[in-house]
């Protein structure tokens, strides 16, 4: 528990390095929902190979890296309804908001973007409210 923040900081720096590489070499914003969403709804057709390559790396490396650092536990719920509803909310919400934790959070806040800061405030607010209601008031999660 006390070393959580060290792993967090180290992982954060690696995430920042990935975002920097994608910006400086490819000239792209490393936003997970935008890269995947653009591939799915056709808006990113002209850059599909670049998007697919990014996603291939993002899926492949954790398969080896997660057991290597002992972080293969996801603690994901097995409640099918919760998985489907939360997945839909994340998919629709990030596309309507045009970004998620990586695009608005990492890439937006680091360029002092007001939009990124507003988006980050509201998804943190939404997440904290849901955890408060569903964990502490209803006891469901």
């Amino acid at each position: 528990m006390h070393s959580d923040w060290l792993w967090g900081l180290a992982g954060g720096l690696i995430i920042g390095a990935a975002a920097s590489l994608y910006l400086l070499v490819n000239g792209r914003i490393m936003g997970a929902s935008g890269i995947l969403g653009g591939l799915l709804d056709g808006t990113g057709r002209s850059s599909w190979a670049e998007r697919a390559s990014f996603l291939a790396g993002l899926v492949a490396v954790p398969i080896f890296a997660a057991p290597a650092v002992g972080h293969q536990t996801t603690n994901l719920t097995s409640n099918v309804a919760v998985l489907v509803i939360s997945g839909l909310l994340v998919g629709i919400g990030t596309r309507i908001a045009n970004g998620c934790t990586s695009g608005h959070g990492v890439c937006g806040i680091s360029r002092l973007s007001f939009r990124g800061m507003v988006a980050t405030s509201f998804y943190l607010l939404g997440g904290a409210a849901v955890v408060l209601v569903f964990r502490h008031l209803l006891g469901w999660i």
Binding site: A32, S33, L36, L55, L58, V59, P62, T74, N75, L76, T77, V82, L83, I85, S86, G87, L88, L89, V90, G91, I92, G93, T94, R95, I96, A97, N98, C100, T101, S102, H104, R115, V118, A119, T120, S121, F122, Y123, L124, L125, G126, G127, A128, A129, V130, V131, F134, I141
Partner: peptide
């Protein structure tokens, strides 16, 4: 849109504990 979408996304994030990057990584 930014506010409405982010609130929806946050709700799904809180329910599951996954945002899009980690959802793809797992």
């Amino acid at each position: 849109d930014i506010v409405i979408g982010s609130l929806m996304f946050g709700a799904g994030w809180g329910l599951s504990g996954l945002c899009p990057g980690p959802a793809i990584a797992v």
